[in-house]
Amino acid sequence: MEQISTTIIIIILALLIPNTISLTKAKLAGRRGVRIYQYFMDTIKLLRKGAVYSPTTTAIFKIAPSVYLGASIVAMLMIPVGVLHPMFAFNGDVIMFCYLMALGRAAIILAAMDTGSSFEGMGASREALYGALIEPALFLTIGTIALISGSTNFSDMFSLIKSDNINMVIVMLIIGYISIKIFTVEMGRIPIDDPKTHLELTMIHEVMVLDYCGIDLAFINIANWLKGASIAMIAANAMTTAFALNIWLTIAFTIFVAIAIGVVESIYARAKMARNTTYILTITAIAMLIFFVAFILLKDIKL
């Protein structure tokens, strides 16, 4: 029962996060915005449709959405919500989580290359670069949590952290902050990418799925949202451990992150493509720094 409710919460959040972001942006732009279940309805509509394939594509193109969706679902099943335990957990599942992310990404990159479109090739090259740069940050962040808690499975990791040590509280807050940054990069939000753009030359995530439609597109969207929800939930868990691990607090924090992203996207412009690498490397650098800080604090090394 507990495991099922964890899964349901994450699925609902997965739909709620993109919806909240676009609703926030719409409100700030003076528009009415979408209905709260609009993304759900759109997905249902896409799922009912068939798929059209370009004759230049091969089997890779057809398999990729399923691989991506499968990887995202399995990854999502390992993420706890506050004190609620996830569907399954084992020692070292944090590593599996990172590589499931990479697997999904690799599938979509290959599928994009498979179309032979010059736009999708550019998108794949950008995604590969940014993916490679953000991966160390993800590993270091999760590694730091593992280091502090002494556990390598998501299920126990957060509940083992005690919030009585002020140093660790600060470390966890920064971990939460880095996780939100990872979320913006992985989800292709401003300043890295602008999901609203229609310009094939500037897109990253959107350009790679230009050739998909119908049920395949629905798979990719669902996989994307689940992936986003998983990372947002890691951020929320990390943040809330600093105070008290609580289900409602984590959910509220996830929604808060979505609103914050909506606000940022309304008042900031997207960065120049060439600046993105610097931005991502900065995230990795902070992650690295906080890892060593946590290490020094834990070992009580006097400098």
Partner: peptide, 8 residues
């Protein structure tokens, strides 16, 4: 402004 994602 739209092309750089500056919604405001």
């Amino acid at each position: 402004c739209g092309d750089i994602g500056y919604q405001l």
